[in-house]
Amino acid sequence: MASQAIEELIAELCRLPGFGVRTATRIAYFLLSRPKEDIYALIDALKKFAENVKVCSICFNVSECDPCPICADENRDHSVICVVEEPQDLAAIENTGVYDGVYHILGGVLDALEGISPDDLHIKELFQRVSEGDVKEVILALNPTSEGETTISYLTKYLKNYDVKITTLAKGISSGSDLEFADKRTIRQALENRTKIEVEK
């Protein structure tokens, strides 16, 4: 029987998404084969992560401060909010270097089959920002999946009550895929050619 310390590590690793007992066991034995310093470096990184990484109370981006550097930057255009699913999508858009507005991270998309409802996402907070701030445009930069489409139409239904322009990314990112897998050029074009959603008020 393996030592209790290994069992405990495997149990912790198993809680990570995509990790089964087999993968966790492989990682545990891999770590065992490495010099002790490597393990301590990992522990240090995790500790720094736990202590320093913060979630922005405005846009839900992750960084080392709250508000995050993007929300705190006065040179950015705070009247344009780009709504994305996850921090990785924000990073993909930031990498293009063409966007100078701010963001709002929903934390996922509506998914009735998986039981993910509006209350599970940062939707209320988005409406709050739009109703309070001097927001002129909301870009719905969600992934082109059917859940993304459902979420866009849900958000549009409520956002149309405010005096803001609602836009979505131009087609070009392949259907069903994620923003984070698209190349810079594709995202830049999708952003620059974004289209206005026409709504009946």
């Binding site: 082109p144 999946t145 392949s174 259907s175 069903g176 895929s177 994620d178 897998f181 698209a182 190349d183």
Partner: peptide, 12 residues
């Protein structure tokens, strides 16, 4: 399935 060129995710 989520890779850019696969196109499969759009059909699921």
């Amino acid at each position: 399935a989520l890779r850019r060129k696969s196109g499969i995710a759009g059909r699921i």
